[in-house]
Design a protein around this nucleic acid. Structure first.
Lengths: 260, 260
DNA sequence: TAGTGGTCTAGACCACTAG
DNA sequence: TAGTGGTCTAGACCACTAT
């Protein structure tokens, strides 16, 4: 066969084609950004129908290796620059220092990126179950919600919804669009609830259709379901953030002592 | 139209069908494990070809919402039980206590799961770049590698490759198949390199074909690329573990104080 | 306009499962 | 055996991009 395939290989043709292409990508024969053969070329080369050639490329798209552009072609996906989220991003001096900034803003700047954000919603809402559990209140209790989308260098990378007990947010800039220098951490601190401990819980999953659209995710890109709880000096949970984070532009680093 | 679709909806039919099905899953009309309509049913209902019905279900598979079983049907995917990895799993008393166990073993037992593992490889190997950087040695320097696959309740959930500087592993049970009670943490401790700090770095991505096969991952399941560095009492890195973790059975929890 | 990927049809035949 | 999903063919036509 012209492809050099072992004819005893019983795998479906579309899988063999995908593996051949994947090998070329991994060896660098097809470098980042390089154009793949067109569907027509693949169909000719492998003596198959267009549908099969398409399916082969689809398999690679689902692995996040390839992107397709209508009218242009299929291309080896380029690795996105990642923001690294470290424990250090929460350090007091970032939000309580000489020139206090938001957590994300300071971190992005440190890594040469630009963070922006829009407010998607602001108001009283019944606490979702995940929030209620962590705030120690009944599901459906009214809480203050602050929903926003954050962007890195113009690309959306996070759908972040923060929830505060009403008694804590009441009368503070947490209820405003702009929370001011130091962001929510500084405002909680001023309100007598100094952020003292952080709990982060997460797992990875594939995005739903609407999430893919909202985060403008390429094919084959997972998201992180992320829950952050801020705990104050008396051990009280004062904010729960539910966040969906674009998986291709985000990495995390934790460093901590071995517990006893 | 029989489906109640707005005829001005310009989205492709396959997408509308997928969204209809997704809505039924999210509202619970199609509960976990419930069978979806067959491709034939869908094609009849939406007056489309089988290929389009198939594509609609494919979209949901890629989101991890649906699994298909040849000869049986398509089903709403059931949420897998997750192991929660917390900072506490590294606690000294787990590997240095009365009845020392492996980190993973102790954690699984606590959560009512059963952890097993096989050794995939054991021997001297040139250090990969990711390892060399973190051990502070030149890429390609010989190190001791210990590659294993871990299982939870019989399902593979992690491809974990640990690398040790030769001088540290030499003459210790780290070179054996069985590292004994307390695992590698206890052996490092005995060798004068007490695990003192942990650094964990990770991001999410889609698995390659071989990884999907090795971890027996359903469609639409991401993996976590996970790098763990163990640092001893003098600040020296003594082990780097490169791991690929099944995303659908793993969640993480970190809790830590806000740094100054 | 030519060339690319995207959607869709109308089939054929194979592989697997349950009864 | 009947019914399901999986692979594949051989087209048609649309949407988008570059020139």
């Amino acid at each position: 066969m012209s492809t050099g395939q072992d004819y005893t290989d019983a795998r479906p043709l579309q899988v063999r084609m995908a593996d051949d292409l994947r090998r070329k990508i991994e060896t660098g024969e097809l470098g980042q950004g390089a154009q793949l053969p067109t569907y027509d070329d693949l169909a000719r080369e492998y003596l198959c129908s267009l549908a099969v050639a398409r399916k082969a490329v689809d398999l690679l798209r689902q692995q996040g290796l390839v992107i397709t552009k209508q009218g242009l072609g299929s291309f080896v996906r380029e690795r996105s620059a990642m923001v690294r989220h470290g424990v250090e991003r929460y350090a007091r001096h970032h939000w309580k220092g000489i020139e206090p900034a938001t957590i994300l803003g300071a971190e992005a700047t440190n890594q040469g990126r630009k963070a922006t954000r829009i407010i998607r919603g602001l108001g009283v809402t019944p606490a979702p179950a995940l929030v209620a559990e962590r705030l120690g209140i009944a599901e459906g209790t009214d809480v203050w919600a602050r929903k926003r989308t954050t962007f890195l260098d113009g690309r959306p990378n996070q759908l972040a919804d923060s929830y505060y007990p009403l008694a804590i947010a009441q009368g503070t800039p947490l209820m405003e669009e702009e929370t001011g220098p130091g962001g929510d951490f500084a405002r909680l601190d001023e309100a007598g609830h100094s952020p003292t401990r952080i709990r982060e819980e997460w797992h990875a999953r594939m995005p739903s259709g609407p999430e893919r659209a909202a985060l403008r995710l390429p094919d084959g890109t997972p998201v992180i379901d992320f829950i952050r709880t801020i705990i104050d000096q008396s051990g009280e949970p004062v904010e729960v953030m539910l966040s969906v984070i674009a998986g291709d532009t985000t990495s995390f680093i934790y460093e901590f002592p071995v517990p006893d």
